[in-house]
Amino acid sequence: MAQTETKALKPKEKQEVMTPAEQTSPGAVFTPNVDIFETETKITILADMPGVKPEDLSIDLRDNTLTLKGDIAPVEGPDEEDVLIEYETGKYFRQFTLSEVIDQDKIDAQLQNGVLHLTLPKVEKATPRKIVVKTE
């Protein structure tokens, strides 16, 4: 499906977010664009976080709340002057509430080309079973 798509990409403005707690370090905070999909055994989250290095990314899951945080380091050299600035850079922050029970030991995260691939396997108990309704 994706292979046949040839539509032209439109620029998307980054969305700035207000984090629940006040920031202690300066700089803008943006919400990464995500794809979330679910199969019977797992939930997958893909998040665009360009400029974030693997060591600057933190993923935290507690009390059914998943928190994604990404810090970025400035890429410009000290002697560079701005000519044209169309996008801003800043940290990424996004939180999700997970309704399913996740097997925390088997969470897998990969960061490739600025895209986070996060696989959250559901615990065995939560995989749906078909319940037959009996009638008398």
């Binding site: 990409l9 439109k10 560079e80 701005d82 000519v83 600025g114």
Partner: peptide, 28 residues
């Protein structure tokens, strides 16, 4: 100055004495 040409990808252009630097965010 924040201006947008409205064309993907959005770019930031900087310069120093010897070079121009064009940067764009292209995740994935």
């Amino acid at each position: 100055p924040m201006t947008r040409a409205g064309v993907f990808p959005l770019v930031n252009v900087t310069e120093n004495k010897d070079n121009f630097f064009i940067r764009a965010e292209l995740p994935g």
